[in-house]
Design a binder for these strands. Structure first.
Lengths: 340, 340
DNA sequence: CTGAAAGCGCTTACAG
DNA sequence: CTGAAAGCGCTTACAG
């Protein structure tokens, strides 16, 4: 089946030039005359030849590969579909820049740092899903110390010249969506989402939420802040805890859409109407958010832009160029679950 | 920052053996004495050495890499979260077998076949999301002819010795879930999902559905079969078309959960109760299916097993071993949207 | 069990 | 603008 492999020497023989010239022509080197280059490229195409990546990478001491590490808390835990959108965008962007994309799902227990760096598997690394900074700290420091370029999504940690990060305007957008609820007349708020120094995205959203309440002199009760990771089940349980706590409640700000969807299910199961009795808002704007009933009011993160930025930052870092972290704009998606 | 690279020669010098012995020891060759092997492995660890993959791959003419191609209809179209689960499982399985995983999102217009094969980027390919066999036919034939091992999810196309496929018991499970609805007393059915020779999964599900109806002598009307791809919006529109058609309707069998979620939203928007007025069932058991209200009755596909099988088949194919296509068992997840 | 040597298929100074 | 040559870091016959 498989015919013997075509190498640059075969092309050279056919074109009547040296192997070096073939190599140059295929890399669009200006050193080769236009006529020779065209001829060589034509022959290469005819013979179905493509450069052997292993050889070129070995020789050029590069990998032309970007790695994407998706960190998950536990093996086989459900991953937020939000990351699928980013992954898709990253894959397109990487391909557009001529890079291969290596994808790994990692648990934080594993020591991926040394592995990736020394095995020359990728020129740089993108980290998604790092929510618990403390657990990752040692690995991040080691990564930075090794000089491996990397970019983080959602965590504002960066070492100039080595790493960068891309995140979105978490605090500001949470302030906006909470203010929207206040304007609608809601006064008894709760926030669902685990916050800590270790979980920066949710923490920033929480701060924006608190800030909006404070600006309107609305009191908050620590009991109205329930920790939850981004999963429907945790949103569901959080609402049960909230209702068990008693007291008036007319709006729940959730740190993610998945949490909000679980929260809405719990409210419904308790016979409460959304938004009639309790308004609910989420964060992410997953595709499904348009199709829950009531449709979910949420904050849209531009995953297409996020993926592109991640790749651009990483490529600049690899090239030794200056990179400044990016905070991407978001947009409020007002639908029915907030009451308007 | 980055120190000069450690090579097997450095290890050899330190261990006082030849470079060949280092190479053998690190590959656990039985040719090396246990004592020497242990010592070399210890030194390698101390020096933070890992084999340079580009060099070893070039030399051994292999890639130790598996490619996963996710085919999408249009650039940036939403991808079914179902594939995220499979992707996660594939990533774990590939890592477990010592393979890297290259991920690409492809449109069918692109000619990925030659690319992958000739560029020595992967030892084998997994194809997900090929729903339209006709469009891919030429590429599949070319792939098979090139001798590149590949495995397809969901499409029963295979060339013994070169390719295989993994799918699930689509027809049988659709028959079961439809029968369940019939037992519940539903008599006026519709099916939403695009079927054609080109879309085997949905087609098999449709056949199972028709079969169940026929077994119970329930009449079907071609107008009650609406084509739809796996997306909430298409499910939504399909229900509008169904309702516009008029006539009694008390159960909708959807070819995917995404379609079902869109369908439920449309019914709700028309003031119809699910399952009171119309029962709805889906397919896939996405995590969200437990949290729609009513919770969605659906068919669970074991994505963890699916990913593992895909990788196992591919690795066997690469090793030249015999592989028989797999049809995985599924399970009915009875929740509320069916009326029991 | 170990070593010396060849060679995988490229890229890239160096020389012309 | 082109060629001859070195060498990236391994793996693996071959010889002992």
């Amino acid at each position: 089946m498989k015919s013997t492999k075509t190498t640059s020497l075969d092309i050279a023989a056919r074109a009547g030039v040296s192997q070096s010239t073939v190599s140059r022509a295929l890399r669009d080197s200006p050193q080769v005359s236009a006529a020779t280059r065209r001829q060589i490229q034509r022959i290469a195409k005819e013979m179905g030849y493509t450069v052997d990546r292993n050889a070129s990478r070995l020789r050029a001491q590069t990998t032309s590969t970007l790695a994407l590490l998706l960190c998950e808390d536990e093996p086989e835990s459900h991953i937020n579909p939000f990351f699928l959108s980013i992954l898709s965008s990253v894959a397109h962007a990487a391909a557009g820049h001529g890079y291969d994309l290596l994808v790994t799902f990692q648990q934080l227990s594993e020591n991926w740092v040394q592995d990736f760096q020394d095995a020359h598997r990728a020129d740089g690394i993108m980290l998604l899903g790092i929510r618990d900074r403390e657990s990752y700290d040692a690995q991040l420091i080691a990564l930075a110390a090794s000089g491996t370029p990397f970019v983080i999504w959602g965590l504002d940690y960066h070492v100039p010249g080595v790493s960068s990060y891309v995140t979105c305007q978490n605090e500001q957008s949470a302030r906006e969506i909470t203010t929207h609820l206040i304007r609608l007349g809601h006064r008894h708020f709760a926030f669902v989402g685990r916050t800590s120094a270790a979980n920066p995205e949710f923490t920033h959203r929480y701060h924006g939420y608190l800030d909006a309440l404070a600006s309107h002199a609305i009191a908050t009760d620590p009991g109205r802040h329930i920790a939850a990771n981004s999963a429907e089940a945790e949103g569901y349980d959080a609402v049960e805890a909230l209702l068990a706590g008693g007291g008036p409640l007319d709006a729940i700000v959730c740190a993610s859409d998945l949490i909000a969807i679980g929260a809405m299910a719990a409210l419904r199961d308790r016979g409460l109407d959304v938004p009639g009795d309790v308004a609910v808002v989420g964060y992410d704007d997953l595709p499904i958010a348009q199709y829950t009933r009531p449709a979910l009011t949420t904050v849209r993160q531009d995953t297409e832009l996020a993926g592109r930025k991640l790749v651009e930052h990483l490529i600049r870092l690899i090239a030794g160029q200056v990179v400044l972290p990016d905070e991407l704009p978001v947009s409020l998606m007002i639908r029915q679950s907030c009451g308007a």
